[in-house]
């Protein structure tokens, strides 16, 4: 389903939880709303599903008007599937019956065949007769997914789908889910507060804060070309260092010079440097003191203080085992950076 939101506002009892939300999700792609808890991302999802009325704006699915002030297609008539954050498996039904739950109008034989096929797909064929409380968290997750997919909804909404799982399982299920969705050409929109989840799953990510969409872009762009300081801060690690921008768009800072591709006025700026933007080079004239180190396996994340007092992060191979207090040479590893005007 091609999903469109046009300056949608919605909320509980007078206070808008999402404001002027606009984005477009092309058919077959996987989108993600990323934001801190309480940012309104679940409300956005519920508005799309039809559980919340919109207070202004429009929601369209394949060009059909789903929600607008005074217009509300009920959830059951939207053909939108949803995986709830708490999964909401029905405790009195076994796995098979849970998956077949949305297929009530199908003939019995066809219904069971479809439910079994989906259980096969999520690798739970052997647990068809188990009840939800007998399954592990990851298995319950997959049952919920199979149930939502069973009626073949053209759009699937997922609310924090992996929040209850440990990191490893989250990674694996995320990849599986992506494969399943792509295989069936299902459009999907998930909400999460975890950027790893967003990066792993989504083609396009929207960062949402206090009900407003800050940026709607690919993971690369969000990370390296964040639209504002909030996105820069919320997505990934990094440091802001002072710099000076000239008329040609070149930014000068203590670490060196780099181009800033986004237009802006000349003057003092704050430059975003990601840990990968800084590298070790003993020949470099710029020296920095290591104030903190965090071992991460293949790499070590160093916090470095420059002579001018500003702090940067650098992700270096962990074989370069510097000590805290040591002074090392560093330089910029990139030719383009993102800069925000002061103030």
């Amino acid at each position: 389903m091609h999903l469109q939101l046009e300056s949608v506002s919605a909320g509980y009892a007078g206070a808008d939880v999402i404001r002027e939300l606009s984005f477009e999700l092309p058919r077959g792609s996987i989108g993600c709303l990323l934001g801190p808890s309480g940012s309104g991302k679940t409300t956005a999802l519920r508005a799309i599903a039809g559980f919340e009325p919109v207070r202004s704006g429009r929601i369209l699915g394949d060009g059909r008007l789903l929600s607008a002030p005074g217009w509300h297609v009920p959830p059951e008539a939207r053909a939108i599937g949803m995986v709830f954050q708490d999964l909401a498996l029905l405790p009195h039904l076994d796995t098979l019956a849970n998956v077949a739950f949305g297929l009530q109008r199908w003939p019995r034989r066809k219904r069971l065949a479809r439910a079994l096929a989906l259980l096969e797909l999520v690798g739970l064929r052997d647990h068809a007769r188990a009840y939800p409380h007998e399954l592990s968290g990851g298995q319950q997750q997959r049952v919920a997914l199979a149930r939502a997919l069973a009626p073949q909804p053209p759009l699937l909404l997922l609310d924090e789908p992996f929040s209850s799982l440990d990191a490893e399982l989250r990674e694996r299920l995320g990849q599986e889910l992506r494969r399943i969705l792509q295989q069936r050409g299902t459009t999907a929109l998930l909400v999460t507060h975890s950027q790893q989840e967003a990066f792993a799953m989504a083609d396009v990510i929207g960062v949402i804060e206090r009900g407003r969409l800050r940026q709607w872009d690919s993971a690369y762009t969000l990370y390296h070309r964040p639209a504002d300081r909030f996105v820069a801060d919320f997505v990934g690690e990094g440091a802001l260092v002072p710099g000076e921008r000239d008329e040609t768009g070149v930014v000068r800072m203590e670490l060196g010079r780099a181009r800033c591709p986004t237009p802006g006025r000349p003057g003092a700026v704050q430059v975003l440097l990601r840990p990968g933007d800084v590298t070790h080079d003993e020949k470099s004239p710029v020296r920095a003191t290591i104030v903190h180190k965090a071992f991460r396996g293949a790499e070590t994340l160093y916090t470095l203080r420059l002579g001018g007092g500003s702090t940067v992060l650098a992700l270096l191979p962990s074989h370069l085992d510097f000590r805290v207090g040591e002074t090392v040479g560093i330089r910029l590893a990139v030719t383009e950076v993102t800069a925000f005007e002061n103030g």
């Binding site: 059951e76 029905l90 149930r147």
Partner: peptide
Amino acid sequence: LRVLEVGRALGMGPFRA
């Protein structure tokens, strides 16, 4: 209401759910 919502997200009317 969550139980009703599960049913409705799967295409059932509120009473049916």
